Simulated scan of single mutants.
Amino acid sequence: MKSAIEQLSTYKSVHLNPTNIKTHFVGIPLIIWSAFVMLNTIPFSLYSFGSTGLELNVAVLFACAVLIYYFALHAKLALGLVLFILPVLYTSFLVSRMEQAWPIAIGVFVIGWIFQLIGHKYEKAKPAFIDDLNQLLIGPFFLMAELYFMLGLERDLDEAITPLARDKRRALTHASKHDN
């Protein structure tokens, strides 16, 4: 498994533009929330928590699996992601029980991707997942890292990934110039 530094520097290499990062702070949570609405509609439940209406279902199992992956990468960032995912799980579960759950989820999903694509226009670089589908999982992890950095936390991690990201970006830019 690639380290957190490797994963984050690869992701950051195509997310250096501040406007792109801002659009991702909108787009990625929208995409995640809408995906969890869809996952919550899958008619499979291992356990129901009585009067709360909450269930141990595909959405919860997926969230747990991804969080385990994040904890394996970097425990402190994973703790922040737990705080992010809990309200996502709850609100997406509630919406998934509505008659219009799928149209709502699809609409939010499309809006989220529009934000992503607008950001990459500013970045002038293709999204990271084009070359590595695992980078779809790294997007939320990257945003949590960026939030920590904005708060002055995990400075060592920032100092480790940013120079690597810039080097990777230079290599990508150099390679694309030679491909044309």
Rank of each mutant, 00 (worst) to 15 (best):
K2L: 11
S3A: 04
Q7Y: 14
Q7A: 15
L8F: 00
T10V: 12
K12G: 03
V14D: 00
N17G: 04
N17L: 08
N20P: 00
H24P: 03
I28H: 03
I28K: 05
P29C: 12
P29Q: 08
I32F: 09
W33M: 12
W33T: 10
M38C: 15
N40W: 10
P43M: 10
F44D: 03
S48G: 13
S48P: 06
G50V: 09
T52H: 05
T52F: 10
G53K: 10
L54P: 09
E55L: 14
E55G: 09
E55A: 10
L56R: 03
V58C: 14
A59Y: 02
A59M: 03
V60P: 05
F62L: 14
F62I: 13
C64R: 04
A65D: 12
V66R: 04
I68E: 05
Y69Q: 05
Y69I: 11
A72I: 13
H74M: 03
H74G: 06
K76T: 09
K76C: 07
L77W: 04
G80Y: 02
L81Y: 03
F84C: 15
I85C: 10
I85H: 04
P87G: 13
V88K: 06
Y90A: 14
T91H: 06
F93K: 07
Q100N: 14
Q100P: 01
P103V: 02
I104T: 09
I104Q: 02
A105R: 06
V108H: 01
F109H: 14
G112R: 00
G112V: 04
W113H: 07
F115I: 07
Q116F: 11
L117E: 02
L117F: 15
G119M: 08
H120P: 14
K121L: 10
K121N: 07
Y122K: 14
E123N: 09
K124W: 05
F129Y: 12
I130A: 15
N134Q: 12
N134T: 13
N134L: 14
L136Q: 10
L137V: 13
G139L: 02
P140M: 06
F141G: 12
F141S: 10
L143G: 01
A145H: 11
A145M: 11
E146T: 00
R155E: 12
D156I: 05
L157Q: 00
L157C: 00
E159N: 15
A160D: 08
P163M: 07
L164H: 08
D167Y: 07
A171H: 08
H178E: 09
H178M: 14
H178P: 02
H178C: 07
